[in-house]
């Protein structure tokens, strides 16, 4: 069994040592996700903290048939970040020193070494993402990593709102068929 899955299962049995190890191994990636979504490091820290508190309380409901531990945890943390964004009256502005808008990390070719470290579900997802048209892929990745709304995507890509909505809809349709 994957080590992270095992640690998360131990957290479900209220094992504090396992929780700390799980935090040490997963928080850097989950924090990177929070920073991109909320675009503010202090708020990202708050969201990460709240997310891990929820993870501790919900860990007893995790089982390996619910997917890889990091994916399960990312669902909790991402929902926490999206809830915070919806509660805020306005979306935080992008800090000039933070280059969170780039999708370079997702565009680079996935090396065989990295591929073997990914869960099988994620490998399949990446293969399906590769089949999307570039504009569909970019919209979906921007929405996932940065929580961009249709309007924000239309503005940043200088395209009509309807076009962006259609790209996302067709991209998701393709993913739906590919992941089925």
């Amino acid at each position: 069994m994957d080590s992270l899955n095992e640690l998360l299962l131990r957290c479900g049995r209220q094992d504090g040592i396992a929780f700390k190890q799980l935090y040490q191994h997963t928080s850097p990636k989950l924090y990177a996700l929070c920073c991109r979504l909320v675009r503010d490091e202090a708020l990202a820290e708050d969201v990460l903290q709240e997310g891990f508190i929820k993870i501790w309380h919900s860990a007893s409901t995790y089982s390996t048939d619910k997917g890889h531990a990091l994916t399960w945890m990312a669902t909790i943390v991402r929902n926490q970040a999206l809830d915070r964004l919806r509660m805020a009256k306005s979306r935080p502005e992008i800090h000039p020193d933070l280059e969170y808008e780039s999708l370079e990390f997702a565009s680079q070719a996935i090396t065989p070494d990295l591929l073997t470290q990914l869960s099988s579900d994620t490998q399949q997802l990446l293969e399906c993402m590769e089949e999307l048209k570039p504009e569909q892929r970019e919209c979906i990745l921007q929405a996932f990593y940065y929580g961009c709304t249709h309007e924000e995507l239309a503005a940043s890509m200088a395209r009509p709102l309807g076009t962006v909505k259609a790209w996302i809809r067709r991209g998701l349709e393709h993913l739906r068929n590919c992941l089925a």
């Binding site: 924090y31 990177a32 990091l70 994916t71 990312a74 991402r78």
Partner: peptide
């Protein structure tokens, strides 16, 4: 959610301040 959130796996890790764990 389980399928899409696998995208978090390819994010480059980012150092977290020690105060976050202390708060938890």
């Amino acid at each position: 959610q389980q399928k899409l959130n696998g995208l978090a796996e390819i994010l480059p890790p980012q150092a977290v301040h020690a105060r976050v764990w202390q708060g938890i």
